[in-house]
Amino acid sequence: MTRIVHLSDLHFGAHDERLVEAVEWQADKLKPDLIVISGDFTQRARTEEFREACEFLDRLRERGHEVLGVPGNHDVPLYDVLRRFLSPLARYRRFIDDTLCPFIELPGVAVLGINTARSLTFKDGRLNRDQVEFIRETFARTSGETLRILVTHHPLLALRVGEEVERAIGRQELALDAVEESGVDMLLAGHNHHALSHDAGDLVTRAGGVLVVQAGTATSTRVREQEQSFNTIDIAEGVATITVHAWKSGDFRASDAQRYEWQDGRWRILKSAESAH
C-alpha cells in the first residue's frame, strides 16, 4: 500500500501553532510514503512567513518524511508590486523549493506538481502550453501500470463549495488536454479551503474517470464553512481510500473515509466507511 498525506493552504502568517504541531505529530503517526502540499505556504509571501514554512518543512524532513509541494497564489507577493511582476516566486524558490514542477515516483505511483500561480491574477490560476507538454512528457516516461497523480494549487475543474461554484482554472481546455492525454488518474489541489473527493466525470464529461481530491486548510485560521483538515490517500490494488482528518476537540480526527475502485476506466465509489486509522 502507498500512503500520501495531502496538506494544503498552510498560510504561515495567519496560522495556528497548535495545528502546526498537530500536523507534525499526525505525520509521524500516519507514516506516509509522501507528504503533498498543494500550495499557499504563506499568507502574504513575506520573508518571515516563508522562513516559518521552511522551518516546518525542515522538521518534517528531519523526521524522515519526503515532501512534494507547489506554490499557491498567496505565495506570490500581493502588495510588493515590483517583486510581484519581476520575481514573483523568488522567495518560494529560496525557502521552499527551487523546482516549480517537482516529480516523485513511488512504487506503482507517480506524483507530479505543477505551478498554477500567476502574477497577473489576484486569486485565479492557469496552465500554459509548455506546462501541458511537460505533463505529457513526464508521465509518458512512467509505466502504463503506474497510477498518475497531478498536483496543483488551483482546482482544474469548477467545484461547488457550499452555496457557491468556484470557477475552473484559466485555460481549462488545456488542463483537460493534459489530464486526458497524459492518462492522469487523480488530481490533488486546494485553494478553496474545502475538503472533498469526486469523480471528475460527474463534473466535466471530457475529464473521464479521473478522481478529484481537494484538501481543506490544514493550519490556517481562515476557514470557509469547514474546520481545518487534511487528507490521507491510501492506494492499494486498484482501490483508493480518501480519509479526511478534521480538527476537533484539540486534535485532528479521522472523520470521513470514502473508498473508490478503478473499474472500466474510471473510479467508482465502493462505500463510505469510518476510517481505520
Rank of each mutant, 00 (worst) to 15 (best):
S119E: 04
L100Q: 01
T152C: 05
V151W: 10
K123P: 01
Q43Y: 10
E145P: 02
F103M: 01
R51D: 12
R94M: 07
A53S: 14
N115M: 05
L57V: 09
G72R: 03
Q43G: 02
N73P: 07
D80N: 15
L60H: 13
R94C: 04
L112D: 13
F122E: 08
T116K: 05
R44E: 12
Q131N: 11
E55W: 01
E137D: 14
E145D: 13
S87I: 02
R83G: 04
I104G: 00
E137I: 00
L78E: 10
V70A: 01
G69N: 09
G108T: 04
F103P: 00
L120D: 13
L112Q: 14
R118G: 00
N73L: 05
L156I: 15
L150A: 08
Y92R: 08
R91V: 04
R141I: 00
L100P: 01
N128A: 05
R84P: 10
V67S: 06
R148N: 00
I114N: 05
A53H: 14
E52G: 04
Y79C: 04
V151T: 03
L60W: 15
D98V: 09
D130K: 14
F122S: 11
E133F: 04
G113H: 08
G108D: 03
F41K: 01
R61W: 01
S119R: 13
H65Y: 11
E133W: 01
Q131P: 02
N128I: 04
T47I: 10
I104T: 12
E55H: 11
T146N: 10
I104V: 15
L120A: 12
D97I: 05
T47F: 05
T121L: 15
N115E: 09
A117Y: 07
S87K: 15
H153P: 05
E66D: 13
R59L: 03
L150V: 03
F122N: 12
R46F: 12
R83W: 01
T116R: 05
I96P: 08
V70Q: 01
E52P: 01
G125W: 06
N128R: 04
S119N: 00
G64T: 09
